[in-house]
Design a protein around this nucleic acid. Structure first.
Length: 434
DNA sequence: TGAAATGTTGGGGCG
DNA sequence: ACGCCCCAACATTTC
């Protein structure tokens, strides 16, 4: 137990640059020990070859070597429940304060409250900062103080708020000497945490600017997909949201900007309505009598529905951890409406597979598809999985890439008749909403 | 960020 | 030339 230190606890903000809480910590009075905890409560739910676990591990190692090479400092990596690890940290160190960035998911809120209580029992301050969004919680609300539940007015108010504020992007370099120096901080390998290297990789973020026409083409036509793969990096904080907002503005890409605002829209929805994690935002929709056929669900998961564009999307997801956005809407609609399988099943499957999985967006978009969410698609909007091919993959390029067997005899027949399924869906929804 | 059913219009074939 | 039918193309409504 030497001189007092401050701790910065990394969670889903795995970068040094423009990290609000970290920079605040470095401006404090004591040397800062950066810490990451592999939370066993989260890890035990993941497959042992999870690509995101590998990505987090590799990112931490990169940060460690960057800190070691350039600043003779490091990053302490632990495994366990945050409770256990902090209980030990307060034993081993004279901690003046702990710094964290806000984390809004229900589990994270509970976890942080527990740590706050633990620290306060030891009379240690906990300082928290907004980092993963530009506007959080109650910063963009209606004049009467209620949250927006429709996107467009939220987006307008968001932009108005944005115009009336300044976006600060901070350089960490001048502050780095404040890190604890010359100590050999604990480290863990992938196998130390019970994981193995994943077969698929979370791709690097591609910062190449895109012409607006290119961007529009890309986001509408899955075969042309050149998207930046930004999602996972916003999820884990390896890219700063403030830098991305600036980039969207600089490139005058309104569509991209709006997508980033959708992300914040769903985040504030989850903050204000945490029950929507497993309950319909529109309660009537929880009366829908889902068919929930296990065998049909399996066919959907594996991309064996017999509808080539649906199968292409699911196979892209299974093989890469990514699915083009337009196909996400189609596969989601197919699951909920053609198969009448509960949106929560689809949400859970995407959560397991998507590298860019974000609870707020995933829940929000699945509820949108099922019709039960905020600002949702009307229940009678049922995508035709064949017409969608004509519109968005007319040359079958995307299909050929992910379902090369789609013209072969071994390729399955459609698992349900479209017309029958459509009418069945309308009947079931009508009955529930009556 | 839908698709199907239904309604309307107008050109062309044909008796 | 006229009326009739067919049907594609487009518009509107309905789910």
């Amino acid at each position: 137990m030497d001189q007092p230190i401050n701790i910065f606890w990394f969670r889903r903000d795995l970068r040094l640059d423009d990290n609000t809480g970290l920079i605040a910590a470095l401006k404090g009075n004591y040397p800062v020990m950066p810490v990451f905890i592999f939370d066993t409560e989260i890890l035990e739910k993941l497959p042992k070859n999870d690509a995101r676990a590998t990505f987090i591990h590799d990112t931490l190692q990169k940060m460690r070597s960057e800190l070691q090479d350039e600043h003779r400092s490091s990053l302490a990596i632990f495994s366990g429940t945050p409770q256990e690890v902090f209980a030990q940290l307060v034993e081993d160190h004279d901690i003046a304060a702990v710094y964290i960035n806000h984390d809004y998911e229900p589990y994270a809120k509970k976890r942080d409250k527990e740590i706050e209580d633990l620290l306060s029992r030891h009379e240690i301050d906990l300082f928290t900062f907004k980092d993963q969004v530009v506007f959080e919680k109650t910063e963009v609300v209606k004049d009467d103080g209620n949250p927006y539940v429709v996107y467009t007015p939220y987006m307008r108010k968001w932009k108005e708020t944005f115009r009336n504020s300044t976006l600060l992007v901070q350089d960490i370099a001048p502050h780095l000497p404040k890190l604890v120096q010359g100590q050999d901080l604990p480290n863990l390998t992938l196998s130390d945490i019970g994981f193995e290297r994943a077969g698929i990789k979370v791709p690097e973020y591609d910062a190449t600017p895109m012409l607006i026409q290119e961007y529009e083409a890309t986001r509408n036509f899955p075969a042309k997909d050149q998207t930046s793969r930004l999602g996972p990096h916003l999820r884990f904080g390896t890219v700063s949201i403030r830098k991305m907002m600036k980039k969207a503005l600089a490139e005058e890409n309104e569509t991209f900007w709006n997508e980033l605002i959708w992300r914040e829209f769903f985040m504030q929805i989850l903050w204000h309505f945490p029950h929507t994690v497993n309950k319909a935002f529109k309660p009537k929709y929880d009366r829908i009598e889902w068919r929930n056929n296990e065998e049909e669900f399996k066919k959907w998961c594996e991309g064996r529905t017999g509808y080539p564009l649906v199968d292409a999307g699911m196979r892209q997801l299974n093989q890469t951890g990514f699915m083009h956005n337009r196909v996400r809407m189609l596969t989601g609609s197919f699951l909920c409406k053609h198969l009448l399988i509960d949106w929560r099943w689809g949400e859970a499957y995407f959560a397991e597979k998507l590298h860019d999985y974000e609870m707020a967006s995933n829940v929000g978009n699945w509820q949108w598809v099922a019709g039960c969410g905020v600002d949702a698609a009307p229940y009678f909007r049922i995508f035709n999985p064949t017409t969608q091919i004509k519109k968005f993959d007319p040359a079958h390029q995307y299909i050929a890439k992910w379902v090369p067997d789609y013209q072969e005899l071994t390729y399955p027949q459609p698992m349900v008749d479209h017309k029958m399924a459509r009418e069945r869906c309308l009947d079931v929804y009508k009955k529930a909403l009556a």
